[in-house]
């Protein structure tokens, strides 16, 4: 009989400096927002238990430094990712323009086995700022870009107010799960699969 093991889903959050990566992560995991976060140096992660249907998963959410100069670190941190979250600030055009760079850089460094189908999710953050008056990237524009990149799911969020954060991460978790090969979910007790797996794609798990 196969035993059911709790699975780890690894999620990487990328995006320009100051778009709110740390805040989104903390809002989702700890339901907290602070104005006094420090710029992330290196990388860190938080974990959260999530449940789908009758299964429990551990979502491991990686928060990385936003400055592109630190991108060369990615090799160490992106490895084994199941989903990549691209974040931009709806009030800063440059942060939206850079989404493509972040996406490409991730695919190079993480080198997933099937880059065409690797799950991304895009978040347009800080929609609360100035009542939306300082917004420079429209929802339409963002969705168009997402569509052009293979229908990437898109969410507009406010980490400060907690708006849409849970929904976004539900989707992120679901997509991360989709990325997981089936055979890592159900593990026979006696077989060591530590070296196996990643090459094959899931066929049966359509969440």
């Amino acid at each position: 009989m196969a035993s059911r093991r709790r699975m780890l889903l690894k999620v990487i959050i990328l995006g320009d400096s100051g778009v709110g990566k740390t805040s989104l992560m903390n809002q989702y995991v700890n339901r907290k927002f602070s104005n006094q976060y420090k710029a992330t140096i290196g990388a860190d992660f938080l974990t959260k238990e999530v449940q789908f249907e009758d299964r429990l998963f551990t979502l491991q959410i990686w928060d990385t430094a936003g400055q592109e100069r630190f991108q060369s670190l990615g090799v160490a941190f992106y490895r084994g990712a199941d989903c990549c979250v691209l974040v931009y600030d709806v009030n800063v055009m440059k942060s939206f323009d850079n989404l493509n760079n972040w996406r490409e850089e991730f695919l190079i460094q993480a080198s997933p086995s099937d880059p065409e189908n690797f799950p991304f999710v895009v978040l347009g953050n800080k929609i609360d700022v100035d009542g939306g008056n300082s917004r420079v990237v429209s929802e339409k524009k963002a969705k168009a870009w997402c569509a052009s990149k293979g229908n990437i799911p898109y969410f507009e969020t406010s980490a400060k107010e907690g708006f849409n954060v849970d929904d976004a991460f539900q989707c992120i978790a679901k997509n991360a799960l989709k990325n997981e090969p089936e055979e890592e979910i159900y593990l026979p007790d006696t077989i060591d699969v530590a070296g196996g797996g990643r090459q094959q794609r899931s066929t049966g798990c359509e969440c």
């Binding site: 400096s17 100051g18 006094q36 976060y37 420090k38 710029a39 400055q67 800063v92 440059k94």
Partner: peptide, 12 residues
Amino acid sequence: GLIDKDVVRTDR
């Protein structure tokens, strides 16, 4: 812009 963002989150 980078500096603006970082000084307001340094040792506040």
